[in-house]
């Protein structure tokens, strides 16, 4: 009888996705979410496991969603016949494939798990429905994602101008 304790009944049960919550809470993408909003948003997320070397999506496939890396690492590559061109190497907390949340176009690159990896997938149909039902939070997240995409576009523009300048410098006739 002495072993009896009310503690398990009185203590708050740990959320089954607590590890996911802890990771998302730290991401800048969700820094405007309060815990309740984040828990609600987590209902959209699919947790997917990939083994080392497994393809997550391929270039030119129809894209449906974006992924946040929970554990492991992902290589974003442009496959070519001679040698794959690596565009990015991403680790826990990074996300990729966000363009698919906005448009129905094909994937612009291939993503491959570089080690055993767990991803949190957010997909367009769920995201659209969520934004319609929770316009305030949905808008905030969309705005945040749009900001990130703008920043990536600016960086790409800068790199493009730099490369163009270098090409012109090496070969003035091409200008």
């Amino acid at each position: 009888m002495n072993d009896f304790s009310w503690a398990p009944w009185l203590s708050r049960r740990k959320h089954p996705n607590q590890d996911l919550f802890d990771l998302l809470e730290k991401l800048p993408l969700f820094d405007t979410f309060n815990p309740k909003e984040l828990h609600k948003f987590m209902q959209l997320i699919y947790r997917r496991q990939y083994t080392s070397g497994e393809t997550i999506f391929k270039e030119r496939e129809p894209g449906v969603g974006m992924y946040i890396i929970l554990t492991g690492a992902v290589r974003i590559i442009l496959p070519s016949e001679s040698e794959d061109i690596q565009l990015a190497y991403l680790g826990p907390g990074h996300f990729f494939g966000e363009l698919a949340l906005f448009s129905e176009g094909p994937r612009s690159a291939t993503a491959v798990a570089d080690e055993d990896t767990e991803l949190a997938g957010i997909y367009r149909p769920d995201f659209i429905e969520y934004s319609q039902q929770n316009p305030l939070i949905g808008n905030r997240l969309l705005f945040h994602l749009a900001n990130i995409i703008c920043e990536k576009l600016r960086r790409t523009n800068r790199e493009y101008r730099l490369i163009k300048y270098q090409v012109q410098k090496q070969n003035p006739a091409a200008a």
């Binding site: 699919y46 497994e54 393809t55 999506f57 496939e61 449906v64 997909y123």
Partner: peptide, 20 residues
């Protein structure tokens, strides 16, 4: 969700899109 979770990674996005 349980049905979709059981879909292999390779077909996941396509099946999810068609199901929705």
């Amino acid at each position: 969700r349980a049905f979709l979770q059981s879909v292999p990674n390779r077909y996941f996005e396509r099946v999810l899109n068609v199901v929705y």
